[in-house]
Amino acid sequence: MQKTALTPYAHLPRSHHDRHVLTSTVDVFGAAHWLLTERAPQPGGDVLPFDTLVVSVQPDGDVELTELSAVRARWPHLDRLPDGRFVAAASRARRYEDANQVQIFDALGRETLSFSVGDAIEHLLVDEAGHIWVGHFDENPAGIRRWNATGRLVWTSDDAHIPDLFDCYALNVSGTTAWACPYTDFPLVEIRPNRPDQPVTVRANSVRGAKAVAVHGGRVAFYGGYGEERDRLAHGELTETSVEPKEVGLLSLPDGPAPGRRRVVSRGSRIYVQAEPFSAWGVFDLSS
């Protein structure tokens, strides 16, 4: 089975390796961001809110530091809006976290707005227009939704005729388009809200359990799966109604081993992978 190695992409500067990585992501413009705290959060034992540091590494290697004041989520999702503001969101909306679940921070790290997008966030990704895409896991039947940066719901999968959308396993947001691969049947769902004639296209797909998806032209790649297929990289070609399977291989770290515990972010033709200790991102690019 062919093995494909990730290409090194972005590294957390060594001067910040003494801090705990609370979460990390790669935004729609290719900048990598790390949300850092002095120590790892302890369930039920921390005083909320707390201050954090965002270390941003631009595609050209420039480093930016932003201190976020009074973050309320112990295990947040993070992304950056096109105007430089940051979005931090708690994956669970419970009790006091509900109305304040999503926090918007200005370029100086001050909270300017908060709102709720619903419990059970699996993915949170910002697009080039500044909309916030949220894919939920199976404890929230909301599926996939798109919000603007003021907390207004602007698109929902409720009437999109996506079959058996119980858990958004994979979500890819690039430009203003989203691609998803939801449980239980794992179709490849193309979402273009700005296209009035056909905003959603659903393609049958035989690849099960993928956690990330990359799309380029008429080709697609799925990363991850169940059990022994957790490092699988499955390729396919798009038709009008289905994904036709092609070769299947493995995706590894740049130096050869399997990633183990990891984070993944899907953006257009790219799948970004960050393995423990979460200080570096590697990338697979389907367009290469």
Rank of each mutant, 00 (worst) to 15 (best):
G143R: 09
D231I: 10
G249A: 12
H216C: 13
P193A: 08
T4Y: 08
L250K: 14
T37L: 05
S157E: 13
R195V: 11
V47C: 03
L65Q: 15
G175T: 10
S157Y: 13
W75M: 07
P163R: 11
I162K: 05
V26L: 10
L81C: 03
L233N: 07
H17W: 13
V134D: 14
P277Y: 04
C181S: 14
A204G: 06
N100T: 14
I162W: 03
I121Q: 12
D119I: 07
G225N: 13
S116G: 13
R232C: 02
N172M: 09
H216S: 15
N205Y: 10
P187S: 09
D79T: 01
V71Q: 05
A275C: 04
T37N: 04
L53K: 07
E128Y: 01
H20L: 00
V28Q: 10
F137L: 05
H131F: 07
C181M: 11
E64A: 12
W133D: 06
P257F: 08
R232N: 01
V248M: 12
V273Q: 10
V55D: 05
R219K: 13
A89M: 09
V57A: 11
L78V: 10
L6S: 04
P76K: 00
G256N: 10
G227W: 09
D231T: 14
L48E: 05
W179R: 11
R94L: 12
A221Y: 01
T150H: 14
R110G: 00
R72P: 00
D46H: 03
G109P: 05
P141R: 06
G175A: 10
P245R: 09
A73C: 09
S15H: 01
D46L: 08
W133C: 03
T66G: 00
P254M: 08
D51Q: 03
R146T: 00
H161L: 11
A160M: 12
V63S: 07
K211L: 03
L188S: 02
L35N: 02
V117L: 04
V220R: 06
P277V: 09
A40I: 03
V26C: 03
V63P: 07
C181D: 14
G260T: 06
A258D: 08
F29D: 15
G236T: 11
Y169G: 00
F137K: 00
S69G: 03
R208A: 04
G175C: 07
C181L: 13
D83W: 04
D46A: 06
E139V: 07
R85V: 01
L48M: 13
A221K: 04
Q274C: 15
V126C: 10
P82V: 08
A40E: 15
N194K: 13
V207E: 13
T176V: 12
D159E: 15
R95G: 02
Y183S: 11
G218M: 03
